[in-house]
């Protein structure tokens, strides 16, 4: 038993993924953990980081306690540099202005393909999920960071449906499809940070979070995952990181 943690799994996700973002980057963020992480990064180590929202917003500052319900309402535009049509903000991805696309995920597979459309057979689904939104565009056109809970049912060998492409079937298959730019960069979970093998494009463990043993990752992953012998260790969330986060989301809408 590890010592009692003073943070929730969602807070851990936000902190760990926020650390991956670099100052000066242009980040296309979804609401929830991605937005919290990007805003956290701005407050802690990346003041020159710019957030873009799918609703058509460039460079807003989120007001603490007024987190937007989606990327498409007026709260997203607070202190923004520019608002523009949805199609045009998404076209910035295609043009190549965006460094990182950052979103959550419902189901992911060993090659980083994401499913947010159907659980089960798409022709007769057990669950019809809401769909891609801009997820397919973002993951098709830029480097991706995905933040999600590490559960066996979410980390599967092969997704039921590729909504947002990762490395498709691995190797060069992504580029072979015509997706010549972008790809999965990191997957951040409440157990570990994962990246992808340069050649096979299979997911592997880059670093384990504090108190997490390799078997815990294996047990919660639905496919054989490579964990190197000398796998890295992340530093636990710091007081200043948690303070910024709790100020942003005092009602814990996204960090409960």
């Amino acid at each position: 038993m590890t010592e009692r943690k003073n943070y929730t799994a969602s807070e851990l996700l936000a902190v760990m993924s926020g650390r991956i973002l670099k100052d000066g980057q242009i980040v296309f963020a979804g609401v929830g953990i991605p937005l919290l992480a990007a805003t956290l990064a701005q407050g802690v180590h990346a003041p020159g980081l710019t957030i873009l929202f799918e609703g058509g917003v460039i460079g807003p500052f989120v007001v603490p306690g007024e987190l937007p319900p989606s990327t498409n309402e007026q709260r997203c535009t607070r202190r923004a540099n520019m608002v523009l049509p949805i199609t045009d903000v998404l076209l910035l991805l295609q043009r190549g202005y965006i460094d990182v696309g950052f979103m959550g995920g419902a189901q992911i597979d060993r090659y980083g393909n994401l499913n947010s459309s159907f659980i089960g057979d798409p022709e007769k689904p057990a669950t019809r999920l809401p769909g891609t939104g801009g997820g397919n565009d973002i993951s098709s056109l830029t480097q991706m960071i995905v933040a999600m809970k590490h559960e066996k049912r979410r980390f599967v060998d092969k997704v039921d449906f590729i909504t947002s492409p990762g490395f498709i079937d691995g190797g060069s298959s992504r580029a072979d499809c015509g997706l010549i730019a972008g790809g999965m960069f990191r997957v951040v979970t409440d157990l570990a940070i994962l990246d992808f093998d340069d050649d096979t494009k299979e997911m592997k463990v880059l670093a384990l979070h504090p108190g997490v043993e390799p078997d815990e990752v294996r047990d919660n992953t639905g496919f054989d995952i490579t964990i190197p012998d000398h796998v890295g260790r992340t530093d636990p969330p710091q007081k200043d990181e948690l303070a910024v986060l709790r100020n942003l989301d005092p009602e814990r809408l996204y960090t409960a």
């Binding site: 798409p122 397919n136 565009d137 098709s140 056109l141 590729i162 909504t163 492409p165 499809c177 015509g178």
Partner: peptide
Amino acid sequence: VRSMIGSDVNARLGDEVKE
């Protein structure tokens, strides 16, 4: 467009999109 290709979103649209 450069997105949707390679995905099942594309595949499911059948003849409504063309490579």
